[in-house]
Design a protein around this nucleic acid. Structure first.
Lengths: 343, 343
DNA sequence: ACGGATATCCAAAGCGCTTTGGGAGGAAAA
DNA sequence: TTTTCCTCCCAAAGCGCTTTGGATATCCGT
């Protein structure tokens, strides 16, 4: 059924060379001949065998990523959204992705296998941790890669795209302080991820500038699920000196937090203020919360698109992009933040 | 840096044939020789080039899927969860995935390209629609595939895994009817997807058995987001003869519905009953809703795992699995369902 | 001691493509 | 007319692996 180059060439009475050249846009082929070839391709439905193409050129037209997976590991909404961004860009250049599932402890080895397999010509890395060993590993692979996020405590001499998490949560905390809040809580992502660390740092800095301290009892780290948001908020509210404002690292966490607040009979924006980081997840819009949420916004999907663009450019060696990018999140004030309640 | 078979063979003073055979477990090689080869592999870090391997064997050890993507298309939580299930199973057999992004209108052509590319040796298809043309296309590709869901109005002569959506929503609706509800609404997924059609049918059947009709004004179809759930519920509640019970096709929709109900000052499980279909999304557990949700439950992740198992078995020709599977969703009663309020 | 298994190994072909290094033929230059 | 230079095309090598079809050596029974 499927024709290959050889058959196609025979059919046309041309050599494989000429057909190949015609298809790949080389100049040394007659315009008329090229048209004939193109026509034949349309008629036969010829598709080049990618494996062969790859073997010959070394290019795979694909971006590799490892997908940590285990019985206990939850799928992550944020990941899906990011992938959508990557995909949106990749489809424009006819690139695809190779997802290599891997046990978390095996991730580095999986990256090496992936790189050596010849299946991909660039790698993508995310969920950065402090002192992340994977960066050194990727550097040693001599294959283009881009990191989403940044490590902490390492030279920044690798290509990344990150948002300025420190600034985002600094801005958010400062707004709350200006509104008169003094006891501010933080419902953060996992404590080993660098974005969590930076957000916490940004918040602490804003507090410090106003002579305030970050109270350890008001900081929770957890996976960013509705459930954890709920539990954290509930625990905060049970404390003797409950916070009057909360920062959430995701709208998903905020979802649970809002629930806990409502259940406690408190009014958001009046009794307690809430700011969440908004990754612009389409299924969870801050403006649709019962009380619209004040957020620090930065589109995950856009980040995915940008990373795909850079990765593809580095493979095709087309166009130059900055190696390091730090995006600024936008602070958007809605109804969930109000002046601190008077005691 | 990276060694290939030839170099490895030279290093060992063996032929490529022997080394290849030693690695692939063929019998005609001395046990001692095999050990030497294995040792050398360990020392050199030799990894076979997959592209070459594939070219020679035709096997890619990978499962292909096309990922519909466009500016307007939202990422889907359900997809991520399903993928986790696929991955969990695939990692056990060292399989990977090829995700080919595609414009929605281009999906069929993308499948064909994917199949012809030699990049994958099985395909996976989901989000089935009624009279889905993709099934005939996949059949024509002479490559194993498994469908998640089923089409409607076509011979069922293709491999699929689906849940019995009709039965699930029949059960759910019947429970509500038994509780005395007469006006029951449905917040469903997109109307062109077959699971939506079947759920609606199941609900209609239960109503019909009790002499009731499905009121078109009480049926909404939409993407399964929080926002749509909210809007639908809001509109239902504004109607003169508002429903006393609602079926939701996803806990994500239920999330919005609950918000609308709360906002209207109604009590879930007393003023209005709610049943949602639960895909067992880790970020959204029905038992964590302010009023725990009665659900029809079936794990999407488990479905992903099973499909991966079947796909891999069909590639490796190891073990036989049923070609068609229909899973039964479990009806789990929690606090969100109660007797219909007396007028 | 000899024909025939049996156990190990190897050379070479082939998978489908790209690319190098020409070659034939016609047009332009001498 | 001969030489030079393009233009357009081709044969063949090579990418890294698997696999077919032997080759060689060892060992058996008779």
């Amino acid at each position: 059924m499927a024709v290959n180059l050889k058959q196609l060439a025979e059919l046309l009475g041309l050599s494989q060379t000429t057909v190949s050249r015609a298809l790949n846009g080389y100049p040394e082929v007659n315009a008329e001949t090229r048209q004939r070839v193109l026509q034949a391709v349309r008629e036969t439905g010829y598709r080049p065998n990618r494996a062969a193409q790859r073997l010959a050129t070394g290019k795979a037209y694909s971006i590799g990523m490892v997908m940590p997976i285990a019985a206990g590991i939850d799928s992550d909404v944020h990941f899906g959204e990011f992938l959508a961004g990557l995909g949106e860009e990749a489809v424009k250049h006819d690139f695809h992705f190779v997802l290599n599932p891997s046990a978390p402890e095996d991730e580095e080895a999986t990256f090496q296998r992936l790189a050596a397999s010849g299946n991909v010509d660039a790698l993508f890395l995310a969920y950065m941790r402090a002192n992340d060993p994977r960066i050194a590993m990727l550097k040693s692979l001599s294959m283009p890669f881009v990191v989403h996020g940044r490590s902490i405590g390492e030279a920044r001499d690798y290509p990344f795209l990150d948002i300025d998490n420190t600034a985002a949560f600094y801005d958010a905390a400062r707004l709350l302080i200006q509104l008169g809040h003094r006891r501010i809580a933080l419902i953060n992502g996992p404590d080993y991820l660098s974005f969590s660390i930076r957000r916490r740092k940004g918040m602490a800095r804003a507090l410090a500038e106003h002579g305030l301290n970050l109270d350890e009892a008001l900081v929770h780290h957890s996976l960013m699920t509705d459930e954890h948001g709920y539990r954290s908020m509930q625990r905060f509210l049970q404390q003797p000196d409950a916070p009057t404002a909360v920062l959430c690292s995701s709208t998903v966490l905020a979802l649970g937090a809002v629930r806990a607040i409502n259940q406690a009979g408190l009014a958001i924006g009046r009794d307690i203020s809430l700011i969440a980081h908004d990754d612009v997840l389409p299924m969870l819009k801050p403006e649709n919360f019962s009380v619209p949420l004040t957020t620090t916004r930065s589109s995950l999907r856009a980040a995915g698109g940008r990373i795909a663009t850079r990765l593809i450019a580095s493979i095709l060696k087309s166009g130059a992009y900055p190696d390091q990018e730090l995006w600024r999140a936008e602070l958007i004030v809605r109804a969930s933040t109000g002046p601190a309640p008077q005691k």
